[in-house]
Amino acid sequence: MTELLQQVLDGLSTGLVYGMLALALSVIFQGTGMLNFSQGEMATLSAYVTLVLTQAGVGFWVALPLTVALSAGGGALIERVLVRRLEGAGELSLLTLSVALLLGLNALMSIIWTTDPRTFPSPFGKGLIEFAGLHMTVQQAGSLITLLAVMAATALLFNRTSVGLRLRAVAQNPASATLLGQHQGLWLMVGWAVAAAVGAFAAVVAAPVLTLSPGMMAFPLLLALAAGTLGGLSSRVGAVVGGVLIGIADNLASRYVPGLGRDLAIVAPFALTALVVMLRPAGLFGKTRTVRV
């Protein structure tokens, strides 16, 4: 029983990273209608930036906001310079662009920092929290709190500020928003900035656990795609909840389902996602399309 609970707790910690990435995917998806395969690589780049800053003597809690700001700038830049040129070319081209970004950013990081894994300092120290036979490292607890805070901040941004209102307007109905005088391009750019910033948080809290290497986020991204679909990419809450569900399902299924095993662990989250989506095509929290043929 203790192991089962511990497995759930482990799944929660892991799943929050998927949820954060899925949240970033969701923000871009709602804005640009693009599945951003390079989200993981963008986040990893952010973690490298943090590492460079801390190694240059900047304190972690100064480096973090700096990184987030730089990441947001980088995300906006990508939207302005690349994505915008392709918006008329269709979602397939946008998807290919994200593939190109994935390959390019990965190569760039490998060239600059090599593919050697690097230790990433845990900003929360190395303690252990124990209760009722369960345990959580201070790093895991700190990540959890950070991620919840970021999610809350994102929710506030979207639901309680005028920036968020405009973002949502552009996402939901680009044509009407433009007619109403909202500068669509500007808000799409802001969306990319927000997504890149959210991704930066995900990478910075994941890096101490995963050790930093250019391909660090490739596997989490795959599960984040499942998480987003499970929860509904059109819903930010859904993306986060989906991530947590995926993290827990992944652990429990590969641990307890006979014959599945750790090597095929990835089957479980995808099977769960497929099942849910068959019943609710827009995902758990997504808005169901009204047009049916």
Binding site: L86, T96, A100, L102, L103, N106, I111
Partner: peptide
């Protein structure tokens, strides 16, 4: 890695 970078840039340029 340079090959991969060239590949990626080629892809972006083509797009």
């Amino acid at each position: 890695n340079w090959s991969q970078l060239v590949y990626a840039c080629g892809l972006v340029l083509t797009l």
